[in-house]
Design a protein around this nucleic acid. Structure first.
Lengths: 195, 195
DNA sequence: CGTCTATTTGAATGTACTCAAAAGCGGTGG
DNA sequence: CCACCGCTTTTGAGTACATTCAAATAGACG
């Protein structure tokens, strides 16, 4: 039971690694601890890391020209987070990631990730699968945003992330489903009063 | 100059193939011609193919519970289209794909794609990159839908797909940017009258 | 040329937003 | 451990953006 057991389990869901591959992989990881409200990366920076959440929780969000923040993802324990745009293009990140509580991540640099692809091709498969799943989730969210009401999106969120609903500030859930905190408050009250 | 030159060029953007690998890859492709309005795949079917557009153009869309269609992607020449959810999960497709004009595609079955991954690992990389790019585009669209007005999304669309704007029916562009055809018509008129 | 589909126009409506202010809650320091 | 300050949530009124429904007009394909 080391600090790497969770991430190795995460990988084992999709590809099998030998003991040596496991050790090699772990040697490429950089642990980092974040305090509540601390940022893992900031919009505008070049994001060079994919990070795995070992403990705690983060939010990934974009800030629009009015300064309004839009949450794109929550990253609780056992999730990956990064700015895929910046990672792929090596241009400044579109997203920021902030710890919502005391958080511990394992960071894999893009350079090490590319090394990994060359030395252990299985990882090419692993990250392909991770990205495929992200794409599916993202696409479903796009469909939901176009076809569901705010309340339906909220109920979806409750079903999909039952544990998160009770530990996240409402304003972040509001932002995730794409409404203002004020509207979210009213809608939620309505929703509860009807059961 | 064969029917495969375009797809080989498409692949060469990301990975280099030997002559033998090219031939092997092409042997796995199944050409198919579609008439205007014909469907490449239908919501509810198991989607077993990723398809490359050699000629023509398709739209990928989801149908909501009211019967309203929501366009998720246009696939002009040199693009890939498929229902990634169905391909990954082997469950019924969420999307349908319809030819907007006479169209020719090269279809790669999931089975052959998996063969390809095993026999030519470079393809694992190729499709990882394709999917990464889709994810980036999808994510940006999600951000745009949450932070921009319909008019801003329309102007974005015009910049991003200058050739498509003039050949697609308005109602499909309206659906893509996420508004009704009626509102799109009014908004567009306003937008033009202000230059 | 005729029919079917797409686009435009208008009026009434609804969903969600903005701004402002009060109330509630929770983390941090004393 | 408690109290306070600051952040979060609630509430309300007025508004804006986009929808619905209906009908007229325009355009395209066979």
């Amino acid at each position: 039971m080391t600090e790497f057991s969770l991430i190795l389990q995460n990988i084992a869901k999709h590809v099998h690694l030998t003991r040596e591959e496991q050790d090699y992989f772990c040697s490429l990881l950089e642990p980092r601890k974040l305090r509540r409200r601390e940022f893992l990366f900031l919009e505008g920076d070049i994001c060079k890391y994919s990070s795995f959440v070992n403990q705690g929780c983060l939010r990934g969000f974009a800030t629009d020209k009015n300064g309004t923040e839009h949450v794109l993802s929550f990253a609780p324990v056992d999730w990956w987070i990064g700015d895929i745009y910046s990672l792929v293009s090596e241009k400044p990140a579109i997203l920021s990631a902030q710890a919502l509580e005391a958080t511990e991540v394992l960071m894999l640099s893009r350079y090490n990730q590319d090394q990994l692809y060359q030395n252990v091709p299985k990882f090419e498969r692993f990250f392909r699968i991770i990205i495929e799943n992200s794409l599916v989730a993202n696409q479903q969210r796009l469909i939901d945003n176009m076809s569901l009401t705010a309340e339906e999106r909220y109920l979806n969120f409750c079903k999909k992330y039952p544990t998160l609903v009770y530990c996240l500030p409402q304003k972040h859930i509001a932002s995730y489903i794409g409404v203002t905190p004020e509207f979210f408050s009213k809608m939620r009250k309505e929703s509860i009063s009807r059961q």
